[in-house]
Design a protein around this nucleic acid. Structure first.
Lengths: 211, 211
DNA sequence: TAGATTGTTAATCGATTAACAATC
DNA sequence: TAGATTGTTAATCGATTAACAATC
């Protein structure tokens, strides 16, 4: 229950609301109207009210929204109060960078272990983690109740790894491999495709030149 | 000219077409119909034909599309044949990882220099680059005709850096700072917001649990 | 109370899908 | 030629914006 079939367009705006509300909070601003929020966030006031009303009536006529309460509510909607066990697979450059990424704790993701298939780095220390052999992936997932995997591995083999970890019980994947993973319906994949982002920038720069 | 006011929805599908066509090419597949492409890429055949026809009639009735020609054309549409001078600002974990990112050369982005504001790492070697002082940013941009900057810096100060580099002549920014940069109309910003992506994953995992 | 602003319905806009004539 | 499949127009669907009664 609770799911009124919210569109992805709305969902992807939620983190932005959350971020701007945190900014307001840090400036000790206590209330805000949809009009004022519109001015700083760039969505229309109408859209803001529509978006929020998908989840509840958080505002008050004649007053607007209480910044702290709305921030807290959106945090709950985003599931930031939930805790998940996570692992990181692929301790290359990007994987190492993400291991240091502070965002995980805000999202309630607890990185329990780091894996790699390269014998040259297995056993090495990376921050608080000793890099483990990818062969141990399934065993570890089952034993430690891992919910989420962060995949920082090359395109080749990514689907194989996804199959294995999903089989072992992983329910969500933050995917940095440049491939569209195929997973069962109950598994969530959120992909960050750097190449697609870069190519989009390339396209937009070209367009600009042409105008 | 050439810009028929293509929607962002279409633009963000282009890199995906390009990637799937490259896959087909590597499998020596020479022709493909919108129906067959639909089956592997997941968009409807109708959408594929609509998308492509924004840029020209690349197909042939009764035959379909020539994979190699279409791949090449989309590469041109994406501006991958164009060359740009780029710099990377912020040689922290993520900046270091991106310095090693092979995608830049495919997009025609030539990283000319790496900058950081931290005195402790200025002067150190990072791959082929000696990390330069961010104080030299504007001077360097003007002298070396830098078109594009990759920003891997913290939220605080990101807008200041953006203002400076735009002022010095940068026309495009690949932004990893978790902030919506304000830039003049002629400057393109493409942002990768890891926190927003992670929060989206958090939301989707929660939703699934509720169903 | 009067003014402000929400929550929500209705109108508009844009994107996706369906249909089919054109044509290879 | 007959069959296949495009390019393109028309229909549908969904998302955004506008409007306003409800109400704090």
């Amino acid at each position: 229950m609770g799911n009124k079939n919210i569109s992805m367009a709305v969902i992807r705006r939620l983190p932005k609301y959350y971020r701007y509300l945190a900014d307001l909070l840090s400036k000790d601003i206590q209330r805000i109207s949809s009009k004022e929020l519109s001015d700083i966030i760039g969505f229309t006031a109408s859209q803001i009210r529509q978006d929020l009303n998908n989840f509840g009536g958080f505002g008050q006529q004649g007053y607007g929204y209480n910044v702290e309460a709305l921030h807290r509510e959106i945090g709950k909607i985003l599931g930031l109060d939930k805790k998940y066990n996570a692992i990181l697979v692929g301790a290359g450059n990007l994987g190492q960078a993400l291991t240091n990424y502070s965002g995980f704790k805000n999202a309630g993701f607890d990185i329990k272990a780091v894996f790699d298939a390269n014998p040259k780095i297995i056993g090495l220390k990376l921050r608080d983690y000793e890099i483990m052999d990818s062969d141990k992936l399934e065993e570890y997932i089952v034993e430690h109740n891992v919910d989420i995997a962060i995949l920082c591995i090359p395109k080749n083999g990514a689907q194989d790894v996804a199959d294995k970890i999903v089989n072992a019980g992983v329910k969500g994947i933050w995917n940095f491999a440049p491939i569209d993973l195929e997973v069962p319906n109950h598994v969530i994949v959120e992909s960050v495709n750097l190449t697609e982002s870069l190519f989009t920038l390339s396209y937009l720069m070209k367009e600009d030149n042409e105008i």
